[in-house]
Structures are given as C-alpha cells and as structure tokens.
C-alpha cells in the first residue's frame, strides 16, 4: 500500500478546507465549545464528522491527482483559487488589498527605529559646563572631604 505523503503546503490547504466545513451549514450555536482544544476538530453531530471525513478525501483526491500529474504548487493553488477564492489560503496573496498587512510590520519596525534614533539623539548626556566653585564653597568642600576621609 503506497503511503500518501502530503507536502506541507497542500496539507495546509486541506486543513483549511476541512475547517471550512465547520463553518458551512453550521446553524446551531457553538455553546458547547469551550476555550479549549486548539484546532481539535470537534463536532456536534455524527453528520458533521462524517462530512468532515468525506471532505478530507474529497480535497485530497484532486490535489493528490494534480501532484502526481506534475502540476506545480502554483498551478494547484490557482485551481483552488478559481473555485474557492482567497479564503482558502492561509497565506494571503500579495495584492493591493493586503499591502497593509504585509508591509505594516515593516513600517512599524522602521517607525520604531526612527523613534529610538530620536531618543538617542536627545539622550546624550549634556557636556557639563565646568562648575566653578568660589572660595567659600571650595573651603566647605575640602572640610567635607577631609571629614569623610577620616572615617
């Protein structure tokens, strides 16, 4: 029996497709779901689970066939994209609508760097003007220092 080995990319797409079935047609509330198992595919009915398993195969099959057929990842993605839309990709495509998403973090980082530069510039300890003590102050200073030394 030849094992079915999936690439991580296609597996991601399959995962997403499987997850979609939970959204599709689920009419009841999710009140049974608690803040719990991350991504544990839990179902409210046998019917849902059956559909989930059905879909696992439904999507693996054409993707598997396409992979065996020599189609590139890009071609497979295009195929799925035409039929299911952007929603199916975990990694959003780079388009005008997602420019903010993809370049936002970089912009934040640059902003951060600019802020640090600004802070550093202003934080340099000022060059102190030499403090000149007058006679009296110098006397007091000497007395103090002597006192300290003796202790």
């Amino acid at each position: 029996m030849r094992p079915l080995v999936l690439t991580s990319r296609t597996l991601q797409m399959v995962m997403l497709a499987l997850w979609l079935t939970l959204g599709a047609g689920v009419t009841g509330s999710l009140s049974h779901r608690a803040e719990a198992a991350i991504d544990a595919f839990e179902f409210e009915s046998d019917e849902q689970e059956r559909r989930f398993r059905q879909m696992s195969n439904d999507f693996r099959c054409p993707i598997y066939l396409m992979i065996m057929d020599g189609k590139t990842d890009y071609e497979i993605e295009q195929f799925m994209l035409e039929r299911y839309g952007d929603f199916i990709f975990y990694r959003p495509r780079l388009m005008t609508e997602t420019l903010l998403l993809w370049f936002g973090p970089l912009a934040f980082l640059l902003l951060g760097g600019w802020i640090i530069a600004g802070i550093i510039r202003r934080a340099r300890p000022q060059v102190q003007e030499k403090v000149v003590l007058n006679e009296e102050e110098q006397e007091r200073l000497r007395t103090l220092l002597d006192g300290v030394k003796r202790e």
Binding site: T21, A24, Q54, D58, P62, R83, Y84
Partner: peptide
C-alpha cells in the same frame, strides 16, 4: 470533479 469545479464544499 464537477463538484470541485463548482467550488462545492460538500
């Protein structure tokens, strides 16, 4: 195959 081409989830 037709289902996939129709973008059917199930």
């Amino acid at each position: 195959r037709l289902g996939i081409n129709l973008g059917v989830y199930g």
